[in-house]
Nucleic acid binder design. Structure first.
Lengths: 337, 337
DNA sequence: CACGATCGTTGGAACGTTCCAAAGAAAGGG
DNA sequence: CCCTTTCTTTGGAACGTTCCAACGATCGTG
């Protein structure tokens, strides 16, 4: 193509100094005289010089780059966490390489290998599907922080997540305070997060002396899974539903409406996550919102700390979720049955 | 930290051969004898050797990496395009560096500079807010493809987008075929995409001899903008609304419901984009869907082609959007007014 | 006014690869 | 059997940077 990219040598010869001095000047060293600095900056600007990150990382033996694996780009939960990660990582002076393995352990491992080839200095996993052994091996090789999950531990592996058990408790507390007794739980299927939320529901019901009303319907984390689970749940006439996540909650609401019932008048619904769509006026979902951007921030902070002190002991940070009451919950009507 | 990463030298000495042969063997050259290959692969595996991408890119003078700028991570439209980009880029044997400038021209430029420092071989801009001059300067320096916009052109700048004018036409055609005459258009504000969709609406209305019914209400691309615009539009009693995008359409629907009217019985609504949420059962939005993943695929293909032939002339690819009829549109009721 | 300090500057080595020319070994042909 | 040819292997240079030891000036200082 057109001329080759200018190198530090080109800048040096144009400025009439040595490459070493250019290197110093460009990185703002105080040992460079004002005169030289001006000439060099000028020459660099004229040539449109841009340092070569590969060469730099090779000479420096550090890349100033962090690798991020995201479980699923479509899922707004992860996208929002990613956003928090990005801004904080940038602020700490690192760049980011993003990959996604589409929730497939094999692909995820391959993508992480690619990241490691680029000598990333650390890894943030915005959820993952890796086997415990794989994750341990990765985290022993490079500073790693897992967001959203805290079920796998390793000596130097940090985690950042919300307290799903407590969060589910908030949802149940809210429904109970509105007078609901027949509160069903639509689970999110077989994954650590959903298990925790289910357990939170169960414990909260027990706490309120409602163990006998506990009703758990197996579901999933998608719209259609929520629809199906809700359809099944309706057979036992609950007055409220706690659903494992917001997307499934939306499916559940559709099922309720299709059954000719009205949300929240006939049935109240609470979701989990606090994705943006839930806040749209036409949706207006009551939900347990996780501070997603904050999860991302914290992950980045932890990672940078671990890069600086690789041997520090594992930190497991829990952020607090809170209930946002919107339009899908209301007082239970006294059953006249 | 623990021991340093093994290099090609370590592999070489463990295998008892020269570094050059290791390099050859690892890249699968046919000139390596079976015996040596086996020994080398074995040694590499034992050491957990992983090639250093920085060194490779330096020696190779190519990075096999593509930079991607995304306008907004939260927006599902862009996320889905990104997904299409990622899979195709990977398939072509490249890695990806993702950045986002949060729709801020200054930040976007800074992020692109970072990408260029990493010697990315090409750039995919999933929309952007760059000034024409900035974009031209970038595209003259490195192969570049812009997705979603085709309003700025440059000699070697490819674009991939959908035909917003034709797409808007589909929406209007559909509404007209259902007997609607009072079709209002809620615009998406002051940006190239929204302008095109508005123009498509206008032209289609004219084509159907409905110029006198043309009613344009300025809006925006967000939920709340859609709500406000719809509230205003309702004053002139339309029977159908064409809204600039899906998110705003959801806001519009909320406004209609808040006014005590029913979608679609009283008012039909058509959106644009085809984001996943629109397909959820409780939303069920009729919309013009763009093949988002395909946009991403094409962008990646074009970019790779341009990397191979930098001087080829600019390509402007248009993909076809199609109407997906769901639950928010129905026949117009004869006005009894 | 010679003499360490200090300051600004420099060339060369290093980082971990790939490429290239050339060397060595094995094999085939006369 | 010696001489090509072919196959396999090798050391060294290069890529663009940073670091380091050392350099010549400039400078007070005794």
């Amino acid at each position: 193509m057109t001329a080759n990219r200018p190198t530090i040598h080109d800048v040096a010869s144009r400025a009439g100094v040595s490459k070493s001095l250019v290197s110093l000047a460009l990185r703002g060293s105080p040992k460079v005289s004002e005169a030289s600095r001006a000439v060099i900056l000028q020459a660099a600007a004229e040539l449109g010089y841009r340092p070569n990150a590969a060469a730099r990382s090779l000479a420096d033996r550090r890349s100033r780059t962090i690798g991020v694996l995201i479980l699923d780009l479509h899922n707004p939960v992860f996208a929002e966490i990613l956003d928090g990660v990005q801004t904080q990582v940038r602020r700490e002076g690192f760049s980011t390489m993003l990959v996604s393995g589409g929730a497939d352990p094999v692909l995820e491992q391959a993508e992480i290998d690619t990241l490691l080839q680029f000598q990333v200095e650390g890894l943030i996993l915005i959820s993952h599907r890796l086997a415990p052994a794989a994750l341990r091996s990765i985290s022993s090789e490079v500073p790693t922080v897992v967001v959203t999950r805290d079920d796998i531990t390793a000596p130097r592996l940090d985690t950042v997540s919300n307290d799903d058990i407590a969060g589910a408790g908030l949802a149940v507390d809210h429904l109970v305070s509105l007078g609901h007794l027949q509160i069903a739980c639509l689970t999110g299927g077989d994954n650590p997060v959903s298990h925790a939320r289910e357990r939170g529901y169960r414990e909260a019901m027990a706490r309120h002396g409602l163990t006998s009303h506990t009703h758990i319907v197996p579901g999933g984390l998608t719209d259609t899974a929520g629809y199906a689970a809700a359809a099944e749940a309706l057979e036992s006439s609950p007055t409220a539903l706690f659903v494992a996540n917001d997307i499934a909650a939306l499916g559940a609401i559709a099922a309720i409406q299709d059954a000719g019932l009205i949300v929240p008048d006939d049935i109240s619904v609470v979701g989990y996550d606090g994705i943006a769509i839930g806040g749209l006026r036409s949706v207006n979902l009551t939900t347990v919102v996780q501070p997603l951007a904050e999860l991302g921030h914290l992950a980045a902070e932890h990672l940078v700390a671990r890069i600086e002190h690789p041997q520090s002991r594992a930190r497991h940070t829990r952020v607090e979720s809170r209930l946002t009451v919107r339009g899908t919950t209301t007082r239970a009507v006294p059953v006249s049955r």
